[in-house]
Design a protein around this nucleic acid. Structure first.
Lengths: 341, 341
DNA sequence: AACGTTTGTGCAAACGTTTGCAATATATCT
DNA sequence: AGATATATTGCAAACGTTTGCACAAACGTT
């Protein structure tokens, strides 16, 4: 493949009878070049369609204007919504984005992080792989590069983190069920206490306490893999109880959909007999019937916010950075699975 | 941010009392370095955790080992499945991936293509924006860089293209309906003849002809935006006909889901009265009830294949390249919406 | 008149790598 | 032994950019 050679500073310098350094400075708005010279240089540069050689530049400046993104799985709808936000915001701020999948594998995760650093990205945005344990390597790598965590985060890693108000969102969801008259609300959550699962569970507990409802272990079910199938399976368990719940709060849309399928099977009326609420506002939540009441997570906004903070860190490297946790708000979207008007 | 300095060839050279060039050659398996030297160099290199400075390298070689991907919208499930394939295969072959969205905007599309080229990617994989008209700029840019089109392609662009067997897939889908005894099969397609829509329509027509069924314009409906809502709307039109169809082939899962919703509304039995078949095997197709019969498009494989061909073109730049169209096979997945066992 | 200041520009080194060519040492051949 | 081939290695240039420093001219200040 014969790529045409690009215009260089040298050529411009030659044509204008100036030195290379002057051209460089003119194009970079260096203060001590005279306005007229800047003018002339800019004119010719655009005329010749000059574009700086990104490698020579990166080589000198150690800046690439690339940010890396590492997520467990790109093909989850929610993830790709966040990616969209990242891409938009990055482009807007003049950065490009390299994306990798950790596939929820911890080793792969640090490996990707390493190659990205080695590759020279200016910063990394990451959503942690499930069961991320060995924080050590990550902590080490943190010395090399600015990192922002989003979605799946960990308080053990000292860096900026962008999350939704998991706890409050769960609280609202459960509160909504209580307000519609439900008294025995089950929860389907994850076994291992991922950050998200834990927070949502806390919100669930707080809601029950606030409204003086008993917390009953029997209707608190957990699963390793929070999928449709497991949502269904756990719901079957709930249905086998003597004292059945009158509502199910599933920590995930998929689990909620599984629940609905199980309830369908037993011809149980939703929401009259048992109401269901999910979490994510995935497309599926509108397709299942009855349509699912769920928590809308603004993935787009999360992505954008993460980029904004990362680039801020990259560009204003203060000696003492204060790492914040940024919370993006969610909305409860009420549909037929919990309340019929 | 204080990035730690990396190990360089120079340091290795110093420690081994060899020249920089020898080190470089040893690490690149150049044939005229003695085996022992190669051994020593490799040993020390891994020991020091040497990683070549990607910028110095790209600077010299004009190779970045990055490939660019441009798609209309990352947050479509099918797209993100293809992306997954791209990421996997690229990583496997030692490349990294930069992703951009064209947002189905033609100008944005060429703009992205340009910045990617300017940025120095080794090649680009692209799925065309809807209504891509001005092929000219793309043809020009083609001189600068290897390009592979996938999914949304155009025969007007002379480059390798990776697609599914749209026509045959549609044929099979319609054939399946005919085999279950359906005689009046409607189709819901796109107004503008996108490559995909056109091919699928051709398959539809061929199937009817093959089985000597009449082609009736009345049950051939089109829409600009092939969404759930429009699937529903067009199905309502079909239901208002005197002579109703006994099956609907929707060119897209979403349209098919819209159709199912419309049929539900009128309490029409699926598939007994009217069967429905979609296209894509999106997750939704299993969530809707009855579960949707659909064409499984192996997005993953398409992504992988595209990368394979692109990298082949990048690495073996023959003077005369023969541009192929690669066809990836699909499967019809039969579910309850068309046939109950 | 001599000096400092400011303004605009150029020189040349540096970043880390690859690579054509030269150089040396060793082996092979007459 | 002398000459020629072969196997290893080193030298130095080149890639395009940025940047510390030096320089010159023009001006204002004593």
């Amino acid at each position: 493949m014969t790529k045409k050679r690009n215009v260089t500073l040298k050529e411009i310098a030659l044509k204008l009878d100036l030195s290379i350094s002057t051209i460089s400075r003119a194009l970079n708005n260096h203060p001590d070049i005279s306005p007229e010279t800047v003018e002339r240089v800019n004119k010719l540069a655009t005329e010749l369609n000059y574009a700086p050689n990104i490698f020579a530049k990166g080589f000198r400046t150690h800046r690439t204007h690339i940010i890396g993104v590492i997520v467990p799985n790109v093909s989850h709808l929610y993830t790709s919504t966040m990616l969209k936000g990242v891409l938009d915001q990055a482009e807007h701020l003049g950065y490009r984005v390299i994306i990798s999948e950790s596939k929820n594998n911890e080793n792969k995760q640090v490996e990707m992080l390493q190659t990205m650093i080695q590759f020279g990205v200016d910063g990394v945005i990451m959503s942690l792989a499930k069961k991320t344990q060995s924080i050590d390597t990550i902590l080490q790598l943190l010395e090399h590069i600015p990192l922002v965590l989003f979605d799946k985060v960990s308080p053990k890693i000292p860096c900026t983190q962008v999350v939704i108000n998991e706890e409050a969102a769960a609280f609202n969801a459960v509160e909504h069920l209580i307000e519609t008259g439900k008294k025995r609300i089950a929860i389907i959550k994850e076994t291992e206490n991922s950050f998200n699962s834990k927070k949502r569970f806390e919100g669930y507990q707080r809601a029950l306490k606030t409204y003086n409802l008993p917390i009953d272990e029997k209707v608190i079910l957990s699963t390793e893999d929070i999928s449709i199938t497991n949502g269904r399976r756990l719901t079957n368990i709930l249905l086998s109880l003597k004292n059945k719940p009158d509502a199910i709060f599933a920590i995930t849309d998929n689990a909620a959909i599984g629940a609905i399928k199980a309830l369908h099977k037993f011809k149980i009326k939703i929401p009259e007999e048992i109401a269901v609420v999910g979490f994510s506002n995935s497309i599926n939540s509108t397709i299942v019937s009855p349509a699912l009441t769920t928590v809308d997570q603004p993935g787009n906004k999360i992505g954008k916010t993460a980029v904004k903070y990362l680039i801020n860190e990259i560009e204003n490297s203060k000696p003492e950075v204060l790492f914040k946790t940024i919370t993006v708000n969610t909305n409860l979207i009420v549909r037929d699975s919990s309340f019929k008007a």
